[in-house]
């Protein structure tokens, strides 16, 4: 049976610098660089294509600078791609862009904002990227609700309380600024914010970095529960293979802005094919 993917990404390329025709040719794992010798531009992602299926958790691994975070930022419309097509197949998107299948990268910034707010939830590696540290934790979540036309303080605060409960945050601290919170709590506020408008796709960027192991375990537990409760499709970027092993079904391995291997997570971790993946798996402590 053929299952329709929820996300389709085709030939996504992001070049920093002026770029030339040879950029993609000149870079990648076989050249062991992501800088084009011809024009000195940096190719963060080159011809990246993949699908995400409904309810699936897809892992993206790779060393620093392999283009993992750039990829997530592109999917969240934080940065503009040089080339590429991005489709989300879900009825919820028709409300914002109509019934035709359109390349989401070509939408105007207003439509992109609607999709960011209603369809995609993102949790960044560093809480200060996803949160306004001087605004109350509740306010950070309220911002997303306000964007979705909520105009009733009581209802907004009730929704914030629900999200706090769901993400195991103390409700009586919702009016405090996240800068006063611990790292683990800040990540939870980010998760609560990402869930505020019932997204269908969740993007997670190295969410357990810098947290101690017990907190890490609880955050991962939380993600796994939310995944089932909300029927989310998740893309998770990590360089921690144990996180990938615990959460994901399928994994993409990236190097120098290219996908070098795709497969079932078990397969990739137990029987890596690409030399880089073999190195990655063998380097595990």
């Amino acid at each position: 049976m053929h299952i329709q993917p929820i996300v389709e990404l085709k030939n996504l390329t992001k070049i920093y610098g002026k770029g030339c025709n040879l950029c993609v040719e000149n870079t990648g794992p076989e050249h062991e660089t992501n800088i084009c010798v011809n024009c000195n531009s940096l190719v963060a992602c080159g011809n990246v294509s993949f699908e995400l299926y409904p309810g699936e958790t897809l892992g993206i691994v790779g060393e620093s600078g392999s283009g993992k975070s750039s990829l997530l930022k592109l999917l969240n419309f934080d940065i503009e791609p040089t080339l590429g097509e991005f489709y989300i197949n879900h009825e919820k998107i028709n409300t914002f862009v109509g019934n035709e299948k359109v390349n989401l990268f070509n939408l105007n910034s207003f439509q992109k904002r609607l999709i960011k707010n209603h369809i995609i939830g993102i949790v960044y590696q560093y809480p200060y990227l996803g949160l306004r540290m001087k605004i109350s934790a509740g306010g950070n979540i309220a911002e997303n609700l306000i964007m979705a036309e909520w105009r009733n303080i009581e209802k907004i605060r009730k929704k914030i309380s629900e999200l706090f409960e769901k993400t195991e945050l103390p409700i009586d601290r919702m009016d405090e600024q996240p800068e006063k919170f611990s790292g683990g709590m800040q990540q939870r506020v980010q998760i609560a914010k990402a869930l505020s408008n019932n997204p269908i796709i969740l993007l997670l960027d190295e969410i357990t970095n810098g947290l101690d192991v017990s907190v890490q375990a609880r955050i991962l537990d939380l993600i796994r529960n939310l995944h089932w409760q909300h029927n989310l499709s998740i893309i998770i970027v990590s360089h921690d293979l144990s996180v990938i092993r615990v959460l994901t079904q399928r994994t993409i391995v990236m190097k120098y802005g290219r996908i070098v291997e795709v497969g079932l997570t078990d397969q990739i971790l137990e029987d890596p094919q690409h030399p880089y993946t073999q190195l990655l798996v063998n380097s595990q402590l």
């Binding site: 910034s109 207003f110 904002r113 605004i135 109350s136 509740g138 306010g139 309220a142 911002e143 306000i146 964007m147 105009r151 303080i153 907004i156 009016d175």
Partner: peptide, 18 residues
Amino acid sequence: AEADYSRMWLYLYEDIVT
């Protein structure tokens, strides 16, 4: 330009909370 006014409303929300 984009009528992106959620932060103005957020400012009012924070005011009400405080």
